[in-house]
Nucleic acid binder design. Structure first.
Lengths: 232, 232
DNA sequence: ACCTGAACACCGTTCAAGT
DNA sequence: ACCTGAACACCGTTCAAGT
């Protein structure tokens, strides 16, 4: 896992597969992302991936130790794609805001990959670049090193945690998602004021608020509290 | 799903299983939690659950629509256990803080259940009580209804998102967890200052900070920003 | 050196048949 | 009414055998 920082030279002597495909880590990761994008949550199995690639499933074990290792590569690719076109403005608060929103949005474009990979440290190229960028923004803002690291941690974990949460929700089968919205409209909205006064009083707001993501607000709260600490 | 608010009277005429067990939703959920607690991440399969209960796996489908429905029941039970002994102090900020920390800690006692259930609205009894309690704290603090609902959403989703993230990490196989710590100690700590100045400058802090949870800090930042909004 | 194919030990879910 | 058992359509992973 640690030797992926420099991806290393291509393997020698690669023989094409029976169906004429030349395998590579890159091709496998891209096919995995395509598979997830096209066929949803449960499409990423090594058997289907082998089928989509035109190779025997067991051939993949020459490129990845197993599904877990494959997953980390897919997650890292997702980080890379999210940040490929990001540019800093020089305003630390605005830069962290746009970075967070990008990673969150990127996760939602491939919910199934994000929900699987969000809680893992990949140690791969794209992740490392993101870490350096975010630390740079915080140090540049004037936070002393230990505080910058703590805020980095809170910012990154908050972003990834919400990305995973919202991605998991987006990745639910249609029926389950509709059932969730229905729970707010029926179960909660119909609770009597006598037993649940605060739910009853705010149920109108709950119905509209809860199907949205709370990440933008949580992000603004974090940045505003961080700004408050900068002055001290 | 919505008819679980009042659990309803017990089913009639329950015949014991071949091995003499009388099944019930309660018994199934408790056995599921025990299974997860004892044998970890992947132990919760309907086949193993049937075995542990002393019933044919297919019998469970009389109590739950499928694994998904079972999961929601397990998640709700977890919320209930986390908050069973919680008592308010009357100080909104302290109460939200202790509630958040309890839910987060509760999730970590059964990481595998938490990571599966954290992103779902269950609409079940324990969840509903938690919603009412948290909304009550925020309304009591003086936030107007729409703001209370927004803050409720950010607070709850942040808590559940971090719970799932940290639980997923805790649920990793030992080898994968050690590999993660190793990534910070080796891959990151060895990056040259020439190419990654900020990582190099702070790597000592990263190594100690990153294996911990960022939730307590993220929670304090959220509460402090919320307090700042109260004054306006 | 690299891919293949069979094998192993599992899954979730359905449904006709038993009691 | 409720549990059972067989069946179906899948999984991830390993490893000896092929090319």
């Amino acid at each position: 896992m640690t030797d992926r920082v420099v991806p290393g030279p291509a393997r020698r002597r690669r023989r094409p597969t029976k169906r004429g495909v030349v395998l590579s880590e890159r091709l496998i990761v891209e096919t995995a992302l395509r598979l997830i994008g096209e066929h949803g949550a449960d499409a990423l199995t090594v058997r289907r991936l082998g089928l989509a690639l035109g190779a025997d499933p067991s051939a993949l074990y020459r490129y990845f130790r197993g599904t877990d290792d494959l997953l980390l590569a897919v997650a890292d690719e997702l980080i890379g794609r999210s940040l490929a076109t990001w540019r800093p403005t020089g305003d630390w608060r605005e830069d962290l805001r746009s970075l967070g929103l990008r990673i969150h949005a990127g996760a939602l474009t491939h919910p199934q990959a994000a929900v699987l990979g969000a809680c893992r440290v990949t140690g791969r190229v794209h992740e490392i670049r993101a870490v350096e960028t975010i630390l740079g923004i915080l140090c540049g803002a004037g936070f002393p090193d230990p505080e910058a690291v703590r805020l980095y941690h809170a910012f990154v974990d908050q972003t990834l945690a919400f990305a995973a949460l919202d991605a998991a929700n987006a990745a639910l089968p249609r029926s389950a998602r509709e059932a969730e919205a229905e729970v707010w409209r029926t179960t909660y909205a119909r609770l009597p004021a006598a037993t649940h006064p605060h739910i009853a009083a705010t149920s109108r707001h709950l119905v509209t608020q809860m199907p949205r993501s709370a990440y933008p607000l949580a992000l603004d709260l974090l940045l505003s509290a961080a700004a408050g600490r900068l002055g001290r």
